[in-house]
């Protein structure tokens, strides 16, 4: 009753204003959480956003609201033996998903995929008696301090002339689309949630930028728009989804959403399509013949930080 009347008060104010821009901002400000919106309200929000973005970017921008398709649970697999660390996936993602790409101020450039370069370790006879503390014989084992295989202690900024380097492996990470997402558990305004097809999405309009989810995510997947996003008109991708790659505003968190604007219409995510070695695989986990299901059935598969019980739907595998 009380809030209703306060709304009426503002509505009365609004009726007097004939400023279309203000009307749009007002409507956006009082928009419901996307999950609670009726189909009409979604259509309204969509029309409003399409109008605003089209004007802002000087081209016809579409904002899709296609819901999850029944019988689909999206899954992703990455062949860790194949990845050569070329970072094409990182840049394809930026081209597709309208991230901020400024160069001048810190935080203006946002990339969702990170490629970790990791050293290949080895066991070494010379290190048999080394240990910690040094000189006291083996207290904490010698060879244990030469990492063998993968350790999550990597480099993001490697710049060799050619990849893959001889003694390195590469591990791309992004949002794992957890089945039990810690980010969803902590969001105080419940603006990030899991869609029925398994993708964890964000309604940017309701994000208050509190960064709880960034702290909760064990995979460093989330990014905050610290500045006003820098998105040149000619580079902007006009095919967008409401929960996906539509342009974001300052102060909201964003992350990988498996290219919802593509995958809801059957198309592979952008990173899958550019990976030169075919390390990235995407498909329907409920379809036993999909690439991902066959990988799960046939290959050696692991999930990153499986001990945290986040149940990612992003799998790493090797031949």
């Amino acid at each position: 009753m009380l809030s209703l009347s306060s709304l009426m008060g503002t509505a009365a104010l609004m009726a007097e204003s004939d400023d279309a821009q203000a009307a749009i901002e007002w409507a956006e400000h009082f928009q419901k959480n996307y999950r609670l919106m009726t189909d009409e309200e979604k259509a309204e929000a969509r029309a409003r956003l399409e109008k605003r973005y089209s004007e802002e970017y000087g081209k016809q921008v579409t904002v899709d609201t296609t819901p999850a398709q029944p019988g689909v649970l999206m899954g992703y697999a990455l062949n860790i033996r194949k990845c050569i660390g070329c970072r094409r996936c990182v840049h394809a993602c930026v081209a597709e998903n309208n991230q901020s790409r400024g160069k001048n101020r810190p935080g203006e450039k946002i990339e969702w995929i990170q490629v970790l370069r990791m050293e290949r370790g080895k066991f070494d006879a010379e290190k048999m008696n080394h240990g910690y503390p040094e000189g006291l014989g083996i207290q904490v084992g010698g060879n244990a301090y030469t990492p063998v295989g993968q350790v999550l202690e990597g480099q993001y900024h490697y710049t060799p002339d050619l990849v893959p380097e001889k003694d390195a492996t590469y591990m791309p990470i992004a949002c794992m689309q957890c089945e039990k997402p810690p980010c969803v558990k902590v969001c105080p305004v419940r603006t990030t949630y899991r869609e029925p097809d398994g993708v964890v999405v964000i309604d940017y309009n309701w994000c208050i930028g509190c960064r709880m989810c960034m702290g909760a995510c064990p995979y460093w997947a989330r990014r905050l728009n610290v500045t006003n996003p820098v998105l040149p008109k000619e580079e902007m991708n006009p095919v967008t989804h409401y929960l996906g790659n539509r342009p974001r505003m300052r102060g909201v968190v964003e992350k990988c959403h498996w290219c919802l604007q593509r995958t809801r219409h059957g198309r592979y995510p952008a990173c899958v399509e550019v990976c030169p070695v075919g390390a990235r695989k995407f498909g329907n986990l409920l379809d036993p013949n999909s690439e991902v299901s066959l990988i799960l059935a046939r290959k050696n598969v692991f999930r990153l930080k499986a001990d945290l019980n986040t149940f990612p739907k992003f799998f790493y595998f090797y031949d």
């Binding site: 198309r267 592979y268 070695v277 075919g278 695989k281 013949n289 999909s290 066959l294 990988i295």
Partner: peptide, 14 residues
């Protein structure tokens, strides 16, 4: 089976 190598286009198995 789509596990080795690269494909682009639609993700459905068919």
């Amino acid at each position: 089976d789509g596990i080795h190598g690269k494909r682009i286009g639609e993700w459905a198995s068919d």
